[in-house]
């Protein structure tokens, strides 16, 4: 595995049991994501994109194959170590934002820090600083239902970045947003999330944002059909 490789997948397979039938979600995935890279996983519904990022993010175990994230084989890790690894190294941005509705923006952003052992007050202070960075410095005390979709996704991005993780996993980050807001969110992600020691994986259907990717992996039926460097090659 290369030194600058953030994610290394080799022949990763995963199947689900659905009432006696086996549905193959990943049929032997080979993929490398480099540090400093924004990789997009695209493809039709049910092609295995979400399963792949779940495996890469360490929240789902593959049936076979190797998946290493920053040199750590997640499958061989003890459950407790995997939790700690996830809390420290992975940031999540979800399609439906998944903010806790009863917490303020700053409190939502502070969760990853608290899970990493930072005291609540300090975590909230750093959460507020992170919100400032994503342009929501005046909304730290707002609850999610008081924010627009774009603002909620900005809070989610702040939450994904606040603990300075090395891998950011985004699931359809723009699909619940209009075109303009979607672009703003992608601009923000590029601006604040990208770095030479960090990698970004985005699962998306939204062809309008393909242009933001450094590389695009097109998936179909549990396989990666091709990996391209620009949208025109798709």
């Amino acid at each position: 595995m290369d030194k600058d490789c953030a994610v290394y997948c080799e022949n990763v397979k995963k199947a689900y049991d659905t009432g006696g039938d086996k549905v193959i979600a990943l049929g032997g995935i080979d993929l490398q994501i480099k540090l400093g890279e924004l990789m997009m996983l695209v493809g039709p519904s049910g092609c295995g994109k979400t399963t792949l990022i779940s495996v890469v993010a360490g929240i789902l175990d593959q049936d076979s194959g190797v998946c290493e994230v920053f040199g750590q084989n997640l499958l061989k890790m003890h459950a407790r170590d995997k939790l700690k690894f996830r809390a420290k190294n992975i940031g999540f941005v979800f399609q439906a934002f998944n903010l806790l509705p009863s917490l303020t923006a700053a409190e939502n952003v502070s969760i990853p820090l608290i899970l990493n052992g930072v005291k609540r007050k300090e975590a909230e202070r750093r959460g507020a600083v992170m919100l400032e960075k994503v342009g929501l410095g005046t909304r730290t005390r707002s609850f999610p239902n008081q924010l627009s979709g774009g603002q909620q996704q900005r809070v989610a991005i702040a939450r994904a970045l606040v603990h300075n993780p090395k891998l950011i996993v985004c699931d359809e980050p723009t699909s619940a947003l209009d075109h303009e807001t979607g672009h703003q969110v992608m601009d923000l992600l590029k601006e604040v999330a990208m770095g030479h020691d960090r990698a970004l994986v985005i699962v998306t259907h939204d062809s309008r944002i393909f242009g933001f990717a450094d590389r695009i992996a097109r998936m179909d039926d549990g396989h990666i059909e091709k990996v391209v460097n620009s949208v025109t090659e798709l």
Partner: peptide
């Protein structure tokens, strides 16, 4: 449940 799932994904243990 989804909120607990989010916490779990972010690294909250079953004990927490």
């Amino acid at each position: 449940l989804r909120q607990f799932g989010v916490l779990k994904a972010m690294g909250a243990s079953n004990g927490t």
